[in-house]
Computed example of a mutant assay.
Amino acid sequence: MSENLVTNYIWENLKENRGKYFVEYIPLRDKSLFASLNLVFLSHTKARKVANAMEREFSNWVSRFPVPLMVSSFDEKGNLISLNGVRPINHMVGFIDISTNKPVKYWRLLPDDAFPKEQLKENYIKKIYNGLSFKTKEELHQQNEPHRKQLRIGLFIIFVWIVIVPAIVAILGWASFWVSSLVLIYSLWKAIEKGLKLKGKWKKSEKERQKEKEELKMRYYYYHCERNPEGFRKLVVENLERDERDRIRKEADFLRKK
């Protein structure tokens, strides 16, 4: 069945504000069996209302873009909302039935062969998503090429600095009296500098004092994290949830202003 799936086009995601929540539609992509629709609720909402909203949005979007669709819902922290006791599972999937031309939905997982093959063919998908912005894989590859090039250059510079340069210095050191002398003088200077620092007679720069302060703070934090690893894990989770909540809020505010 995979030969019928879209393989080269990546259409833009669509986002719309609904007040108490916003939706993000992710078009069907490479080797997928369905598009995805995510509802993100901005405050606590009862599971039954969430499920009803999922069904309502499903009917809307699957009629707008008649391809197989899976719907999920998330809270303001980015966590999947549990529909336990309201629906059999937390996800809903469905499509437009070809024989009746009406949407059908299932609160259960479907086998691959349950999805209509006709709605997964590339020509059909291109027709359904006509008007949406898209990029091909080749365009995305070219778009990311400058970043990959910078990364390769950076790795090459690091390799040269930590491998090639020391090797050249070592070779020249054996061949040249002056190079050997410069290396010796530099080594002696670093030794003197280290000795003065150990005795506390080396005047630290503002940058060094700031770095020392940061390292002391890190050691202090590390000490207490080691003493209370469970508390540290909770703190990490709280920070991640706060960051995700802030991101979702900003996204919701942006959609309201559109």
Rank of each mutant, 00 (worst) to 15 (best):
M1P: 12
M1D: 07
N8W: 05
L14D: 00
K15A: 11
E16H: 04
G19S: 02
P27T: 06
L37G: 03
L39I: 05
V40R: 04
K46G: 05
V50P: 06
A53V: 01
N60W: 04
V62E: 04
L69P: 08
M70R: 15
V71R: 02
D75F: 02
E76T: 03
G85V: 10
V86I: 15
P88D: 11
I89W: 00
I89F: 01
N90C: 03
I96A: 06
K105L: 12
Y106R: 04
L110I: 10
D112P: 13
F115C: 05
K117Q: 07
I125F: 03
I128W: 06
N130D: 14
G131F: 07
L132C: 07
P146H: 08
P146C: 09
Q150D: 11
R152H: 06
L155H: 13
V160L: 13
A167H: 03
A170G: 09
F177D: 12
S180I: 00
V183T: 15
L188T: 04
L188D: 01
A191S: 12
L196I: 02
G200I: 12
W202Y: 14
E208S: 11
R209M: 15
E215S: 07
K217R: 15
R219I: 06
E226F: 06
K234Q: 15
V236S: 00
E238T: 00
L240Y: 01
D243S: 12
A252V: 07
F254E: 11
L255H: 05
